[in-house]
Design a binder for these strands. Structure first.
Lengths: 114, 114
DNA sequence: TCAGCGTATAAACGATTATTTATATTTAAG
DNA sequence: CTTAAATATAAATAATCGTTTATACGCTGA
């Protein structure tokens, strides 16, 4: 690993610019039903009706949330006959959700670890 | 590093339960002004008026967002005379923001890395 | 106690959003 | 071409949210 790679690991990206992008992604993750959908399609692609049955949500609601997740580029679409399959676009979303979950736990137990 | 620590790193927490907690945290991170405030108080504690001047936001708006961030346990409060100081409660929030920022960049450049 | 500063709250408003109900679009089969 | 199934869209509604304006609260010094 060269010096550039090392610098990439330790260097803190700006993050003061482009707050719009992380805020937008966070908004996509701010709804419990959308998170359920993301977890539902994280391993294998699922049809809309499959998601509907698995999560016990109405079909228009699932379609609406999928549209939102597609807008955020968090899911990818694939048509097959009359079915439309959705799958997670990037596994790092799940990692971020884990970190959010872990952080929430620690915050409530007041072990802020800071 | 002992076996427990290793297990902690690789073990996948449930995450299918308690989706409410990460969704709630994500909602706190879904507003650009709140993110600016979080970054503003990430290193040293800041008074409300300090934040107001630094971010060029109205005082009631800053107070409102601080109340929201307090509800999410993301900031801690400390009174000193007539001043009220706020500071970031847990540095991992910044890490999560970085990951969101990085993910957003990669998603738009279509290098999903998945 | 009064005045002034820092902060919090209330009320009001517009905008966005999650959800439901109803309808349209698309696809494949007969 | 017609029909049925899968999915998407539209319209409508209720709820939430971000912001502004105005006002109240709390602390400190005179």
């Amino acid at each position: 690993m060269d010096a550039n790679k090392v610098a990439e690991q330790t260097e803190r990206p700006p993050l003061d610019r482009n707050l719009q992008a992380p805020a937008f992604l966070a908004k996509s993750l701010s709804d419990e039903n959308r998170l359920r959908i993301l977890l539902c399609v994280r391993n294998r692609k699922k049809s809309v009706s499959g998601i509907v049955e698995e999560l016990h949500l109405s079909q228009p609601l699932v379609s609406h949330h999928l549209k939102e997740l597609r807008r955020a580029l968090l899911v990818e679409v694939e048509r097959n006959g009359p079915f439309v399959f959705y799958k997670l676009a990037d596994g790092r979303v799940i990692e971020i959700l884990r970190k959010l979950h872990e952080l929430a736990q620690d915050l409530v137990t007041h072990r802020t670890g800071f």
